[in-house]
């Protein structure tokens, strides 16, 4: 069955890509700066968190050292978060948002959450580029490990896809889901080592099995900030999360997709 999924994805790749490209473009259509906003937004958001948390939580005695380093530390941790947040937030209502399309065209419904995830990932890649720019500005070194992020992105896409597939189909049946999801996102954000360092709150490491962001942020920081290979344990945990979430989302989708057309 998993092989079939990838065959289907390959067969529908033009449709998926066209949808994702249209979604990404339409967000910045008509604005003067265009997709530059996709780069400015993460910079502003990361900047705000750095300002707040560097004054509230003193980052001394941690791997994050001085303030500019702490800034990069937070920024690196936010990179996967941006993608997950955008995917889940916009993905949770994607089936209802496209109700008109679903009712009038025969199309595989799973591409709807997927195209949001891909569009969010494109924004995420732009944020990574911004991060690298900021890093060069402060640290004057790049390293080569950052290219390996390209290997993590497909895994991250699959994870987000599984998650949004689950949430968006559930939302069709239970219209409370998207509101619940938005609330849960806030909790998830603060329950993850994004604006906190793992060293200051070591219990994060015991949360690995339930919160994939513990591993994912570590992978991002290793590759982009510390210029080293990520720990095997982080990669294993995140891959496990991806498989489980994709399976749950996929099974849920398969069980319900026939009914979705009648209910949107």
């Amino acid at each position: 069955m998993p092989l079939n999924i990838f065959k289907e994805l390959a067969a529908n790749r033009f449709l998926i890509w066209t949808f994702a490209a249209h979604d990404f473009r339409s967000q910045y259509l008509g604005s003067i700066l265009g997709f530059v906003w996709a780069m400015i937004k993460p910079l502003i958001i990361a900047g705000i968190y750095v300002l707040i948390f560097s004054s509230v939580v003193p980052p001394e005695n941690s791997s994050a050292g001085n303030t500019s380093y702490f800034g990069l530390y937070v920024f690196a941790g936010m990179l996967p978060w941006f993608v997950i947040q955008e995917s889940v937030q916009r993905g949770s209502t994607v089936l209802l948002d496209h109700a008109h399309l679903i009712r009038n065209h025969k199309l595989p419904l799973y591409i709807l959450p997927l195209h949001i995830v891909i569009s969010a990932t494109v924004s995420g890649i732009l944020a990574i580029i911004v991060f690298m720019g900021v890093k060069i500005f402060f640290v004057h070194e790049v390293g080569i490990s950052f290219v390996l992020i390209a290997l993590i992105l497909p895994l991250q896409i699959l994870y987000c896809w599984g998650l949004t597939m689950l949430i968006s189909t559930a939302h069709v049946f239970l219209r409370d889901i998207s509101h619940l999801t938005i609330a849960m996102l806030t909790i998830w954000f603060f329950a993850s080592p994004i604006v906190f360092t793992v060293e200051s709150l070591p219990w994060f490491l015991t949360m690995r099995w339930v919160n994939p962001l513990v591993s994912l942020t570590a992978i991002y920081r290793d590759l982009l900030l510390f210029q080293r290979l990520p720990a095997i344990i982080d990669i294993t945990w995140f891959a496990l999360h991806t498989v489980v979430v994709l399976m749950i989302g996929g099974i849920f989708y398969q069980k319900t997709c026939r009914e979705v057309v009648d209910l949107v």
């Binding site: 033009f14 449709l15 066209t18 949808f19 249209h22 473009r25 339409s26 259509l29 008509g30 008109h100 399309l101 009712r103 009038n104 065209h105 025969k106 199309l107």
Partner: peptide, 27 residues
């Protein structure tokens, strides 16, 4: 199928872009 002529067309995209979008929808 032409069940609804406007579904699948994106209002802020150009005609050409919409041809690609709708064409992709038709497989």
């Amino acid at each position: 199928t032409i069940l609804d002529i406007q579904s699948g067309l994106h209002p802020r995209m150009t005609g050409i872009q919409n041809i690609y979008l709708k064409g992709a929808l038709y497989g």
